[in-house]
């Protein structure tokens, strides 16, 4: 493994490095926990790594509570997210997803932006952020900025709308309208730790004080080329009273989640097993 590295410590240096490499082969490196393993398997002689592990810009590194939600820098690590009390209390789906990701040593360096841009259908933090209707804030090397819903940002297997001259600066999550929430991240694998999900389900459901569901976000991991947001399952819940949900309602909800599942059979699980697990997980989140 041999490659050139451009070290960047400020946002200005980063954008200049991206601009200077538009005609060459480069990758961005932050936590390197996926990248090193990928680079070991390929010819890296013509490759440049733009290293952002030492970038100090707070817009890229900090987790900040804002009036209308939470902003998380692309360089926040999974451990930063696990240790954040505001996330633990208000967005359990994200807290659980980050804490179920790999192991301590990897969580200490693996970044949010890396989890998103690696575009794995089983990306844990990404799946939870899709359920939370997160928005990506993207900058380009000419100073342009744009924002896009994370669920629109991912367009296929290993494909995003990110252009070669762009990088994700941070993501935002809308503030909860109500404190009354059912929120969590279910991850099924063959063991609890160091596991890539066979199936995962992220859910974040808000109720008003009467128990009426006012907002719902559900995402399914590792059952499709992307991590789908289960719109029809969410719409089905809106306006319903959480206490009045019948077994038939829960089954219908699970069936609607299943509309988004088109899993493959691979070494980790069969298509049949993945569908069974997703259906069962979807039914049990209300119990």
């Amino acid at each position: 493994m041999d490659f050139e590295v451009i070290n960047t410590t400020t946002s200005d240096e980063l954008l200049k490095a991206i601009a200077a490499n538009q005609n060459s082969n480069f990758r961005i490196g932050a936590g390197f926990t996926d990248l090193i393993n990928q680079l070991k398997k390929q010819n890296t002689e013509e490759l440049t790594i733009i290293n952002i592990a030492q970038l100090k810009d707070e817009a890229y590194t900090q987790i900040v509570e804002e009036a209308d939600g939470l902003r998380i820098g692309t360089l926040a690590t999974a451990s930063d997210i696990v240790d954040n009390n505001f996330i633990r209390e208000n967005y359990p789906v994200l807290h659980q997803a980050a804490s179920k990701l790999a192991c301590t040593q990897i969580r200490n360096v693996a970044t949010l932006g890396g989890n998103i841009c690696n575009v794995s259908p089983s990306g844990d933090m990404t799946a939870s952020l899709i359920a939370l209707k997160a928005t990506c804030h993207i900058v380009d090397c000419n100073g342009g900025e744009r924002a896009e819903l994370l669920s629109d940002f991912i367009i296929g297997l290993k494909k995003t709308t990110l252009k070669k001259n762009e990088i994700i600066k941070n993501i935002t999550i809308p503030m909860n309208d109500h404190h009354n929430i059912i929120s969590g991240y279910e991850k099924v694998g063959s063991r609890k730790s160091m596991e890539i999900a066979i199936v995962s389900l992220g859910y974040h459901i808000q109720m008003n004080n009467d128990g009426t569901i006012t907002d719902a976000g559900v995402s399914c991991g590792a059952v499709a080329p992307t991590i789908p947001f289960a719109t029809s399952a969410c719409d089905f819940l809106l306006g319903k009273d959480i206490q009045d949900l019948t077994e038939a309602d829960k089954e219908e909800f699970a069936n609607k989640v299943m509309e988004y599942a088109s899993p493959i059979s691979d070494v980790r699980a069969s298509e049949w097993y993945r569908k069974e697990v997703l259906f069962n997980l979807s039914q049990t989140i209300f119990s």
């Binding site: 590295v5 070290n7 490196g29 390197f32 926990t33 090193i36 393993n37 290293n51 592990a53 030492q54 451990s79 790999a102 192991c103 301590t104 040593q105 990897i106 200490n108 360096v109 160091m194």
Partner: peptide
């Protein structure tokens, strides 16, 4: 990055030294 045998402490945090660039 699976086995943790190479774990060292960097600025108080345990990390896998097999997946960490020396320059960092």
């Amino acid at each position: 990055g699976e086995c943790g045998a190479c774990s060292v402490i960097v600025d108080g945090e345990a990390i896998n030294s097999c997946m960490y660039l020396a320059i960092n």
